[in-house]
Each structure stands twice: as C-alpha cells, then as structure tokens.
Nucleic acid binder design. Structure first.
Lengths: 260, 260
DNA sequence: TAGAATCATGCAAATATAGGCAAGGATTGG
DNA sequence: CCAATCCTTGCCTATATTTGCATGATTCTA
C-alpha cells in the first residue's frame, strides 16, 4: 500500500489528492479506490469522484473498484489508410449480422478482419479467439469481448502467430464461427495463398470451426496462387462488398455457399 | 498625524505579500489560502485577490481553497510519455548488457519491460517469449528477434495473456533469462501484486526461467500489496535506475541477489 | 443465483468564491 | 494645502464547490 508519509498532511487540496492518485496509478499501474481512500483518509466517495474527473480528463482509466494507468492501454497504431477501406467496412458490417450474444468465434488476421474487430459493438457479449495481434488489440477496447490469443511464433509480416505451436493450440478449440480472409479465391481452385505457413494455420482454423465465413473483397475473386488452403466447399458463408445477387458471384452459387 | 511606525512594520505592500505567497508556493508546492491569510495577518479576501492576480500572471495555479505551483501540475502533461521514462530507460539499458546472441529470454509486460523490448538492438539474434501484446509488437520491428507469444486469455487491463492456458503454455518452455516487472517490491515481503491473476502468471514465468531478472524503478522499493509473487530470493538479478552502491538498496544485499 | 462490493444519485453541512460596497490611505492636479 | 480620484482592503451576501452520508441500483464473485 502507500507509504504513510501522506497521512501526515491533514488538509489536502483536491489538486494534491488527485496528483497523488495519479502518481500511484502511474507507479503501480493499478490501484484500488478503497486503498487510496484509507491512505489519504478521505471517504471513498471523494476518491471515486476524483478518479471520475481524472478519467474524464484522460489522465487514467477508471475501472470497477479502482483505476488503471493509460500507459498500459495506450494502443495507438491504427492504420488510417487501409486499401479499399470502404469495401472492407461494408463486408465487416455484413459479417456483424452473424454475431449473437454468447457466440464463440475466431477472427483471422488481415485488414478486413481487423475492420470486423473494430466494428464489433461495445455491448456485444462474445468470446473471440484470434492469432492476430492487431485484431487482439482492437478487441481489447471492447469491455464485453473475451479475447483469447492463440499462442505461437509471431510472423512479423502478418503480425499473426503461425507454426506448429499455433496450429496445435487451434486443434484444441472449437468455435461457432471463424471469420477468415484469404490471399486469393477462385470458385474452382478454392482458397489459395502465397505463404505456406499461413496456409497451414488457416487449415487449422477451418478445422476448428463449426462454420467458416470468408471475408473477401470482390477484387480477389477468380484469382489463385501457389498453396491451397481449402476447397471452396469448405466455406459456409462468403461475404463480399457486392450485392449478393451480383453476377460476379454467379460461379460460386452452384456450391453450397451462403452469399451475403 | 500619528507616527506610522507600527503600521509600517506590519503593513505589507501588496507586491511584498505576493512575493511571499509565491515563495511559499514554490517551497511547499501548495498552500492553503486560510494559512497564508493567518500568517500574513490579512483577510482571506485579500489573499484570494492576490492569488487570483498571480494566477492571471501565470505565476502559480489557483485551485479551490488554495494554490499550487506550476511545476507541481506540470506532471499532468506527462501522460504523453511513460511515467518516469528516463529511469525506465536507464534500467532497460542495464538489462541489455545481459543479453547475448542466441539467448532465449522471456519479457514480461509493463512499461519498463516494453522499454527493454524497444531498446533491443536490430542486429541481436535472440529468441524472445512474451505474453505482452505491446512487447510483441515492439519486438516485431527487429528482424533478428524470433518472437513467440504465449497464448491465452488476454487481460485488457495489462494487455498480457493470463489464465490457465497461458500458465500451461509457460510450463512447457524453459528460457535462459526472464525479465519481469512487479507492482510492489520489498526486501522482506518480496514481490507482490494487486492482481491475483497476474501473480499466477508471474509465478509460472519464474518457474520456467533459469535466471530471473527483476526490473523496477526505485520508487517501488519497500512497497507491498495483497498477493505475493515470490520471495525476494527467487530473484537472481535486480535492476533499478540507481547506482548499485546506493544505500536504498542495502536491505537487498544480504540476499543472494546481484544488483545492477 | 444469492450475497457482497461497488456505483450513481440526491441531500445537507461546511467551506470557498465572486461581486458589491464602503472606509481608509495614497496620488494627482490645481 | 485642498479636493477629486484611484487603489487597496475588509466586510457582507448570494452563490458555488466540496465532501460525507444515505439510498437504491448495478456489478462482481463464488
């Protein structure tokens, strides 16, 4: 707890008290309102009001029963210029309609999936696995989302975990929906990638999902590459920014895919 | 007219009075209007008006019931940076000397550890485990660092993975050095934390390390909290921003700890 | 799901503030 | 020297802020 030095002061200005609170939060990352109240010898209400003010001033973050330092949660790097952001936004919006309270989902890496993570409503109560650092960071801003990161070696390129460990960890979970992106998609060749490691992880993701949802901008339709993730049938729902009736999607209709 | 001798003695010029107020504020960082009024034997209104003027001249800051020095409130703008960044930087620099090419290490969460991650040289070839998202992000900028993130549920407060899964994952690795922070440290009570979950993870980290290095700013010395991570003996090396010979570290010398 | 802890809200007492006012003293111009 | 004026100061009153307590609502936890 706090050193007893502070107790010597019997009349404290509000300003001083708030500075003390700030220092304690910065120092220990987190404090209890009750601790501070006891140490500074004021009522819990006063501390609560102080912390509320400091929170409003963005000096710290108030949490139930205490306060945490901002330095911790300072999570800035939001990339402003994502390629085709508008389209990806549209896709993410459609994907959101699939989410129900209590769902357990997996979200893949990539900008489209990050966009989905960003748009998840604050009050939606879900459990979300991911192997993407940016997605995890984004989800951490949602108080009602339970975030679980799939451990493993981190690929600096994709900012996602890959490799045997990640795949093994995925083998031990089962999610309702997985939302995945892909490098290339074609109605005949299925989902393909440039990178072999990424393919292995995506295979594991699909295997651990009851339903797999593909998020892809229409620009990727009818393209292919070296390594295959899965047949197109492995996808249960496919979301593009296009209207579901758009003729560009025709070649995907014969398969058992729901198109949104 | 009567001689004004007496009045001259206890009549203070406005200028003089304001100077006194200023010195008092500088000396004590804060003053109460009532205190000053009593000391200088003028009405509270006069002092209030003085302080108001001084505030307008930016000589101090007036607050409800008193005034605080400008330097005192300067702290409020520090939120841009990390609290005590300079000290943490110094600590990180010292920690760096322990790293050798080929090392396998673990880096904990927290701002001090993030600072260490930031300062790892580009060309240093190491394998680094972490359960902290910010640390992982930082390390990803180093091409020669192999980053492995310990999977598990992510705590939004600390931006680290916690819980049974993270602990289990830690149980399956062994690292040469772990660099850990702590909320509170005391030579008698050892390392303690506010948060029970964090303690469990730190215990697991210590268990999977051949050597454990504690990074802590001196401000945390001789503080304690509710949950215990480990005895002070569990620490092999302790790094603060202080000179190793500093007397503040005396109480840690009887233990088998290397102090840097 | 129940009990405990924490929270938001309203209230009242104590204290602090702002602004008006008047009594000096100081200053200035004749 | 006098008088008009300004500045400073203390006092007063209406208003605002701060704080602790009581209350019921909400959230957390086991």
């Amino acid at each position: 707890m706090l050193p007893d030095i502070y107790e010597l002061v019997d009349t404290m200005l509000k300003e001083e008290r708030q500075q003390t609170i700030l220092s304690e939060v910065e120092l220990h990352n987190r404090i209890l309102l009750t601790d501070i109240a006891e140490t500074l010898d004021v009522s819990i209400d006063t501390i609560r009001r102080d912390v509320k003010e400091l929170d409003a001033e963005n000096k710290l973050r108030k949490v139930h029963g205490g306060a945490v330092s901002l330095g911790f949660t300072m999570n800035s790097t939001r990339n402003q210029n994502i390629y085709k952001l508008e389209e990806k936004n549209k896709i993410a919006e459609k994907a959101l309609t699939l989410l129900k309270p209590g769902s357990v989902i997996f979200i893949d890496g990539g900008t489209t999936c990050s966009e989905l993570a960003r748009l998840i409503p604050q009050n939606l109560d879900i459990t979300c696995f991911t192997h993407s650092l940016p997605v995890a960071s984004e989800l951490l801003t949602k108080p009602n989302v339970n975030v679980i990161i799939v451990g493993g070696q981190v690929s600096s390129e994709s900012q996602t975990t890959i490799g045997a460990n990640a795949i093994h960890n995925l083998s031990e979970i089962k999610v309702d929906y997985s939302f995945i992106g892909t490098g290339y998609v074609d109605s005949f060749y299925g989902l393909t990638e440039f990178d072999w490691d990424i393919v292995q992880v995506k295979k594991a993701v699909i295997k651990c999902s009851k339903k797999t949802v593909l998020l892809s901008i229409s620009e990727k339709l009818n393209s292919q590459h070296r390594y295959k993730t899965c047949d197109i049938n492995a996808i249960n729902t496919m979301i593009t920014e296009l209207d579901p009736e758009n003729e560009l999607l025709n070649s995907f209709r014969n398969h058992d895919i729901r198109i949104l």
